[in-house]
């Protein structure tokens, strides 16, 4: 695939929706139903990105992603700040990776 073309096209389809409201300042009204549909997209997109992708982050150890997701989920539930969640998860996962050779049962 031509990566340069891909980047240009993706940049265009991202920029065009961004710039249209900036040019046409007059209020663009959507029906509340359509607006609701648009607002739901980030949530459904996150859901679809996480599952099943999280299980294949490391193709050799499917449960690594799952452990990360559970830790992050638990911390977010406890209202830990976003940055801290990411850092703690990374640290725990590095520890898990270091332990993997001693956990043959799991593999």
């Amino acid at each position: 695939m031509d990566i340069t073309l891909l980047i240009i096209l993706c940049a265009l389809v991202t920029f065009i929706p961004r710039v249209i409201p900036a040019i046409f300042m007059e209020r663009l009204n959507f029906s509340p139903k359509f607006e609701k549909f648009l607002n739901l997209i980030p949530y459904t997109a996150l859901a679809a990105l996480i599952c099943p992708g999280v299980l294949t982050v490391d193709p050799d150890l499917w449960y690594i992603g799952l452990i990360g997701a559970v830790i992050a989920g638990g911390l977010a539930w406890k209202k830990v700040p976003l940055g801290a969640i990411v850092i703690i998860t990374v640290i725990v996962l590095i520890a898990v990776y270091l332990m993997v050779p001693f956990l043959p049962v799991l593999i």
Binding site: Y43, L46, L49, I50, V57, D58, A72, A76, V86, V90
Partner: peptide
């Protein structure tokens, strides 16, 4: 292993973004 852990940090971020919204609403 550090690179792989960073890789998973994105999923951690996704989950962390979803959880507060999901906690608020059962339908969501």
């Amino acid at each position: 292993i550090v690179a792989n852990s960073f890789n998973i940090s994105l999923y951690a971020l996704f989950v962390a973004l979803l959880v507060p919204a999901v906690k608020e609403s059962k339908e969501l």
